[in-house]
Design a protein around this nucleic acid. Structure first.
Lengths: 229, 229
DNA sequence: TGTACATCAGTGAACGCGCGTTCACTGATGTAC
DNA sequence: TGTACATCAGTGAACGCGCGTTCACTGATGTAC
């Protein structure tokens, strides 16, 4: 085996490198600045090379999003498993993982929640996002079973939980927080305490009594994707 | 005065029309689909005409964002003034206005919170967004004065409030909610109840005791823009 | 162990479209006199 | 009230770059024999 040679004809793992380089560019200049020619140049290959790995630009974006959802799922699973207590504590851990993921994977997060990333055709991307989302649904329903979340249609609760962490994550990623002088150093402790507070507030039983949604009577998370058994 | 003539040489108010047409395109195809040539065609003028009103594409986007922040401010002021009770009730009204604005002005909202819209040069845009943001800061501080929000650094409270409504607004606008079967018809009542619950939960005095932020001791909203007096 | 061959993953030149932007020119409108 | 002129806001042709994408070709690698 020869020593690591920088300039071999074959790249090694161009697919992986393209994604890495893309994330760098997104971090620095945003998703709009992504272009395959420029990325190929950064990856050290010619402009045609990426087409052996991605059919087109959209497929690269979809691959980044898919990887992101898989990383998010892993992070949520790992953080949830660290909490062995109440289901509500576990739910807060998922929320914490969500926000922490967004801040530590800004490039992924931006692509994942970009409207035009998700084409109806891409089943793999849909599956990966469904799995991550299902973790949240399950955690909310477990809170209901455990009695730490109000019974009934879990949809409003899921929306509440998701929008809470998604808003914080979005503001963190888009630097919306810098304008009010939030230092990155204090962000971590802030995320932890805020997600816990938000979710514990959500779990208070008085919520459904004022939600105005009981009368909808729809089935429990009927449209939620289910994990394969 | 001749009857309204469809094809006069002078358009009338091309600037306004360009913005309107842009919002239609954003609604249908997203911000990425905006291009000045196509917009000019839709507005019924030649491709060079818009340049008498906007120096370039970025200036058009900035104009849309600025108009959006002005509309948002108006909506928040109007909704806040309808509530004459507690400061905390007024804060919830602002949150409701924020989410309702996002759902009824999707195009504006998308441009307003797009990372690349805000260039440091555009003072008018910065002013309009600062004013809207200041409404939220003032409302939070009024809750503190009134005693319905915990004392101390208001920053975490402002972040909490903002991220809550921003997350819900983002999910509404990006159709993230459709995947869990939230019907548009029930969204309105949901927004009202959720923002109220979220903000009343936020205002509970136990929050700062667990926020892990007291020790930061930073000045109250020191970086927040102040309204001109 | 060497040779032939298939296959994979590169190169780099080229094509061509879309679109931002410019520019000389022109029709409409307002105003001074 | 008409005329001259300035100015504003259009036209539409053209320029040119950026970039997605293609394609014939080629170097590297793996495998059968």
């Amino acid at each position: 085996m020869p020593p690591v040679k920088k300039s071999t004809y074959h790249h090694g793992d161009l697919r992986k490198t393209m994604i890495e380089v893309s994330l760098d560019v997104i971090d620095e200049k945003g998703v709009d600045a992504l272009n395959l020619r420029g990325l190929a140049l950064l990856a050290g290959v010619s402009s045609g090379a990426p087409y052996h790995h991605f059919a087109d630009r959209a497929e690269l974006l979809a691959a980044i999003a898919e990887e992101g959802f898989e990383l998010l799922e892993s992070a949520m699973v790992a953080e949830g498993e660290r909490e062995t207590g109440d289901a509500s504590v576990r739910l807060a851990a998922l929320g914490r993982a969500y926000v922490m993921f967004a801040t530590s994977h800004r490039g992924h997060f931006r692509v994942m929640f970009r409207g035009d990333t998700h084409s109806a055709k891409d089943a793999a991307l849909k599956n990966s996002s469904d799995r991550a989302f299902q973790l949240l649904c399950d955690a909310v329903e477990n809170c209901q079973i455990e009695g730490t979340a109000p019974p009934g249609d879990p949809k409003p609760l899921v929306v509440h939980a998701w929008s809470t962490v998604h808003g914080l994550a979005t503001l963190c990623v888009d630097a919306g927080l810098s304008r009010i002088g939030i230092e990155p150093e204090i962000l971590a402790s802030m995320i932890t305490s805020m997600t816990s507070q938000m979710f514990s507030a959500m779990a208070r039983p008085q919520i459904p009594n004022t939600s105005g949604l009981e009368q909808s009577g729809s089935a429990c998370c009927q449209s939620m994707p289910k994990r394969p058994t």
